[in-house]
Structure formats: structure tokens, C-alpha cells
Design a binder for these strands. Sequence first.
DNA 1: CGCATTGTTGACAAAGTTCAATTTGCGTGG
DNA 2: CCACGCAAATTGAACTTTGTCAACAATGCG
Lengths: 227, 227
Amino acid sequence: MTGTGQARKPDATPTLLTGIPERDVNSILEAATPTKLLPNRMILTGGEQATHVFMLKTGIVKYYRLTHTGDEVLFGWLVPGNVFGLASLLSSPVAYLGSAMAITECQLYVWERDRMRKLAQTYPQLAENSFRVVLKYLTALADRHAGLISLSAEQRLADALLELGRRTGQVHSAGVEVEITNEQLGDLAHTTSFTASRLLSRWKRAGALSKKRGKVIIHTPESLVSD
Amino acid sequence: MTGTGQARKPDATPTLLTGIPERDVNSILEAATPTKLLPNRMILTGGEQATHVFMLKTGIVKYYRLTHTGDEVLFGWLVPGNVFGLASLLSSPVAYLGSAMAITECQLYVWERDRMRKLAQTYPQLAENSFRVVLKYLTALADRHAGLISLSAEQRLADALLELGRRTGQVHSAGVEVEITNEQLGDLAHTTSFTASRLLSRWKRAGALSKKRGKVIIHTPESLVSD
DNA sequence: CGCATTGTTGACAAAGTTCAATTTGCGTGG
DNA sequence: CCACGCAAATTGAACTTTGTCAACAATGCG
């Protein structure tokens, strides 16, 4: 039992460049190709050989997988700073485990596989950070999985909405404004747009939020939390 | 059995020691503490600080998580060769993401964190393999998650049974024999022992398998595959 | 032999999904 | 500026799947 030092922040969102000195960060970013994408563009496709590493600079990306029946299984939304395509780092080639698609207009850093592998040798912190990021995704997916099993559609929807507010919400005088459709929200919470509509209506009636087409304004996040 | 430069198996179950020369493997294993555990012993607990890396030598371990309501969310069963506790490899300490418990009597290799971190520096292949293993777990959990969303209880149960057959089954003249209770099978497939019982009975009536207490003998795996 | 564990079966309930019908909101082009 | 048309949202009702619970049967161990 290592009686380690002090309480650190619970989860200080580690990313690829955490703990790397600024001049090295610059070298690393310069080795990437900056790319701009329109909404609905595919970025990578699950099952294809991993050839690039991506870091999202601006915009929102959805990471998902298609089942053999064609249903979409959403793993989560990626926001600026998030890194994906890390399977490329392995010495022997592996497939991407899911597909990534731009939801909004996006700017990305894109590294070619060999380039990134060399960088990871030059800057070992990069390798460690990659490992940490993959572990973080594993934890996130574990959370998502546990939630799907043990929470009701209502709780999942509330969680999805609150996390969206935290990650992509615009703070407004009347509350936090989130740009999302019922259908997207349903996907995030693993339910249908119908269920999403019913629950949102209920919360609206309770005064916890208000709705516009493609938009939700959360007035009282607390009132979504429990029950 | 190095076998480089030859058609490799599609998913040759990469593990911690893959591609490491035998004498180095010996050094690595010698650095571990061999440990023997009785059934139902906890090995590590989710949320605790990661201090050790484990490799299962013999036996079966379940890896799971408890929700705040106390339900158990099973991520999977670990079989000999599987490695866990890899969060220990990070430079700054992280928590184990789930709990591990011995199902059968088990033998384990256990490495103390600092020891393993030094080994990973000495043998870089060890670091790469760790990364690969974590990616593999991510893929496995993604599969599991997708299955939970898109498959019926029946299909999940069939999958669980078939995979058990593959991984832990005893080949017998009458088919593959799997040691498992209805309840364990239900847990694996994310359903109840009642549903498991009903489906097994149906398959038994169809002649696809037979049952003993705590045991299933699969006669015709094909007939479980689709519907 | 007795007892605990495991398994079976039925009746019922809960949660969400599905589908169809309708309404609302909003940009576009006349 | 209005009317059109389409995408998004709403709502009700039936339906499906699976979980829950209770009662009971069987298996096998000590």
C-alpha cells in the first residue's frame, strides 16, 4: 500500500499532449496535417486498417459502430482535445474499432502512422499519454455499459443531457443551451426519439428546461439528477 | 514458436509476453510473485489505486463492476494468459476500473507496480504489448456493448455459450462440455437465470444440447447460431 | 437421509418500442 | 410577406420482450 501524497483532481482529462513541454508540443503539432471537414463527413471507418491518428481541434465528432443488421451503436461524442485512431500506434497493424463522423464542421490534426510512431519514440510521454487515453476510453465505455444495464431510460437521458451541457453547452442567462435534436439525444442515451420527446416534455412541464427545435435550454440541472 | 514472417492468425490473442525472446520471458516471470487463490477470493477491487499487474496462469476470473445500487455488471471472464491491472503501468497512479474475483481455484503471476514499470523500460515490447492488450479489451467491451444493444437475450445467451465452449470447453465425444450454472450464464449474457433456464430448455427440447446440474453439453453448436 | 443449491415453470408486471396520425417550427421561393 | 413544404416533435394505443415472484422439483453432497 503506497500511502501516496496528496489528493489530485479526480480526472483532469488527460490528453495526448499533457505534460509535454511547449516547444516539443509545437514540433508534434507541426508534424500533423491540419484538416477541415464539413458536417457528415466520414473521418475513419471501423474495420479498416488503422493508418492515422487524429486529434480534434474544433467541432463535434461521433464515434460509433454499425452492427451487422445496420443499426448504429453510439460509443460517444468526441469534443475538442479528444484523440482517436490510437490503434495506429501498434507495430503490427490493427483495425479501427469504430467509425468516426463529423457532426458539426470540424478542424483536426492528422498524423500519419509512421510519423506518429517516430514521435512516440522521440517523446516517450506521448506513448504514455496514448496508453492513458485508451484506458480512459475503456473506463468511459465501462461507465456507459454499466449505465445501460442499471439505469432507466430516464436516468440515461438525464445523464446524456447533463454531460452535453457540461461539454458542449453555451451558458446563457436562462440556463445552459445545448444544440441537439431529440433523435441525437435518444441515440446518446440509447433510447428512441419518442421516449426522448416524452421525457423532455415531462421535464418541460416541470419547468426544468425549455425546448426549441434542435435546441434544449436546461434551467435547473438539479431537477434532472435523481428520480 | 516464434513464427515471424508467416501468415499470422487473424486474432492470435496477443498477450503480455508475445514476441519476447524466451530468456527475457523467464526474467520477466521470475520478477513476479506466483500466487494461488481459492474460489471467490477478491483479487483487486475497482476504485482502489492500481498497485499490481496480474497474469492468470490457471483458473477462471470474473471481471466486473458494482453499480451504486449494488448490481453487478459483468465485463467478462478472464482465462489463462489474460492480463489485468494494467492501469498500474501509468506513471501517475490511477484506479482499477473494475473488480476481479477468482471463480475457480487460480494461479496468478503478480508484479508489483514499480517492478513492472522497470521491466517495461527494459523490454519495450512489454509496453507495446500492454497497449495492445488494453486496446483488445476496449474492442471486446465494444463488442459486448454492441451486442447488448442490438441482440436479443436469446442471441446473447447463444453467443455466451458458444464462446464459453471455445474458451473453456472440454471436448467430449457427445459434444463440448461447459461447466456453468444457469445463473452464471445469465450473468454472462446480461439476462436472468430464469430466461437462461427457459432458453436452455428450449434448446434441449430441440436436441441441440443437454444439461446436468452446473454443466451444459453442446451437441450441435450450429443450431444455436441463428435464431 | 436431509438439506442446500440449482433448476423449472407459470402468471403477471414493467418498461420501452413501434407505428400511425398529427402538429409545430422554420427556411425558401414566389 | 405569405404560403409551401419538409424536418422535427408530439401523442396515443397496441404490442413485445424480458424481468419478477412464487411455488415447486431435482440433484447431489456430507
